[in-house]
Design a protein around this nucleic acid. Structure first.
Lengths: 109, 109
DNA sequence: TGAACATATGAACAACTATTCATACGATGA
DNA sequence: TCATCGTATGAATAGTTGTTCATATGTTCA
């Protein structure tokens, strides 16, 4: 071991959230950590879109988009609504926008 | 191709940030997308810490911590200051806290 | 009911990532 | 100057992840 930190560590450990929460936090940000998913979320800023339109917009396979939408849905970031053959996705709540906005701020300065 | 979306797509494309920025955004969130790094950032909430203390706190190799600190530093999320043999790391700015706070809110509700 | 369309999904593969190990670098004090 | 301590770093490896391909599910309309 190295020099003594016990005092400091005791204090910090007390204020740290539980491991499970920290894990969930990491998992959440992992979802934001992909350009395709970021683009999908940005595309939904204006309102709902069907899978078909998203894949055309991003010039990507329908399958690839579907897989990513599932990831986003599992993280409660987007919701789905069926209308006939099509399924429309939209942002689940405003958290998506605020999280992206905070990231945006860090980058552009 | 599928049914027609040209009108919608034209509008959305106009409002979408450039690809490079979206890439940078994804890269930034990727840094937050790891539990070890989240823990390190949380540990620095109270103030600066040396590498030694962080690795003791997280019960991880000094090498592992150093690698992650480099990742955080490259993303301008932490800064380093040398004092003798030790190097003290601290959060670069308040963005770290606000980004984590937004993620926290999404999870806990 | 069957054909066509929109979407979902499982398996497979290539690309990426976090940790470990070994070692190098830089500072201190004897 | 040399031994020691704190930290950084490159290479290797195991685990993870995004896309593709093939195919399945569900809906509409004739």
């Amino acid at each position: 071991m190295a020099h003594d930190h016990s005092e400091l560590l005791k204090k910090i450990k007390k204020d740290m959230p539980e491991d499970e929460l920290l894990q969930d936090l990491g998992d959440l940000f992992k979802v934001f950590g992909d350009t395709t998913r970021i683009k999908i979320m940005y595309a939904l800023y204006e309102g709902e879109m069907c899978v078909c339109a998203i894949s055309e917009l991003l010039n990507m396979t329908q399958s690839a988009i579907s897989h990513q939408l599932k990831t986003l849905k599992d993280a409660n970031l987007v919701s789905a609504r069926r209308d006939g053959k099509e399924i429309y996705y939209s942002l689940s709540d405003d958290h998506v926008k605020s999280i992206i906005a905070e990231g945006y701020e860090h980058i552009t300065e």
